[in-house]
Amino acid sequence: MIKCIAIDMDGTLLTSSHQITKENEQAIKKAQQMGVEVVIATGRSYQEARYVLDVNQIECPVIGVNGAEVRSAEGVVVAASPLAKEKAKEAAVRLLENNVYFEVYTNKGTYTSDGEKGVSVLVDIFMSANPEADVEEVIKVARERLTKGFVNIIDHYDTLFNDDQYHIYKLLAFSHHIDHLAAAKASLEHVEELAVSSSGHENLEITNEKAQKGIALEAFASSKGISLTETMAIGDNYNDLSMFKRVGRSVAMGNADDIIKAQCDFVTLTNEESGVGKAILEALNTAEARY
């Protein structure tokens, strides 16, 4: 019987317009009513994750920043695995050497040293994948990350790296130049204590090697007295693999790459078709059928 469900956000729980469908919301709340522990496992910061969850009044713990931080349903930090400052600095240098834009996720929020660059890179990435989209609307959405305070502008990242009050959770790198990303990834893979993953073809996520969704989920489930064999994980990308390899029931989204699908027990519908809701209800129905 499934007692814990971990759900990725972007490309999984959320549609391309960053919304949670009513079907997904209802399935999550049904699982919770049945006593199942539901936890969000995302690369997003807690603030960005909570903003979307609040719209649908979904209350649950959040494994954020790829596992670098875990918060209770009340928003209290219960675990964290930050990067060592020297490792964060080294990763930053290697990204800059390869002309790759990046943002820094910390315990005090997410930061960029170039807001306009961040907007333009995200717009370029989205428009290349969705050429039919309204560019003005895409620019508006990209800029909202700044105007809504999800990303803060700072003069220089050294402020974060040299001040003990900031704990570095993740460096999130973006580029529509795939060769630049590939070169940066190859360079970073030689740095000890780093985990390098991605939530899309146009990004890299650099964290402490212990800050992975699967590791955080294993600790979370254990703290609730739940075994991983009783846990289900739903996701769509490479930063979800560490969960898939550990849980008793792994579910890939219909929009996931074939490589991801091949490593999962089940494949559900796409994120536009409420695939999360379908996967949850199937798991719940299977459990009900046993009794």
Rank of each mutant, 00 (worst) to 15 (best):
K117L: 12
N152I: 06
V39T: 05
D265Y: 06
D163K: 10
S45P: 00
T147R: 06
V123I: 14
N271Y: 01
G200W: 00
S128V: 08
Y101R: 12
A27E: 00
E37I: 06
A252D: 00
N162V: 04
A129I: 00
Q57C: 08
V251N: 09
L228W: 03
A183C: 09
K117V: 07
S17F: 00
F126D: 06
A279K: 03
H177S: 07
E288F: 07
T207M: 14
H167E: 14
E189F: 03
L194V: 07
K170Y: 08
V135G: 04
H177R: 15
R71W: 10
L146P: 01
T12F: 02
S242W: 06
G149T: 01
A256E: 01
R246M: 06
R246W: 00
N98F: 14
V141M: 03
C264W: 09
K89L: 12
A49N: 00
I259S: 14
E202N: 11
A211S: 11
A182N: 13
I2Y: 03
G43Q: 11
A252R: 07
F244Y: 06
T106E: 05
A133H: 05
D257H: 08
G225I: 13
G225A: 12
L269Y: 12
G11A: 09
K210Q: 12
K261I: 04
F150I: 08
I125K: 05
E116G: 12
I63C: 14
A256F: 00
V276F: 02
M127Q: 14
K213Y: 01
E37M: 09
A216T: 08
N285C: 09
E189I: 10
P61F: 07
K117G: 15
E218G: 05
E205H: 08
R290S: 14
Y291G: 11
C4D: 01
V251I: 12
R143P: 01
Y105T: 10
A73M: 13
L146E: 02
D124R: 13
Q47R: 14
K108R: 15
S128L: 14
E48V: 12
D134Q: 11
V123D: 04
N162H: 13
D10C: 11
A256Q: 01
I40P: 00
R145V: 06
A186S: 12
Q165F: 06
D258C: 02
H176T: 09
S45R: 02
E86G: 06
T270D: 05
L160V: 08
V65L: 10
E189K: 14
H18I: 03
F126L: 10
V119P: 01
D158H: 10
V121E: 15
E132P: 00
G235C: 06
Q26W: 03
G214R: 03
D124W: 03
I5V: 13
A92G: 14
A195Q: 13
K170N: 12
N237I: 02
I28M: 13
E23G: 01
M34Y: 04
G75S: 07
K3E: 10
L188P: 02
A216V: 08
A262N: 05
G11W: 03
G64W: 05
A6H: 04
V93G: 02
A88D: 06
R246F: 00
G248Y: 02
V251K: 11
E192V: 12
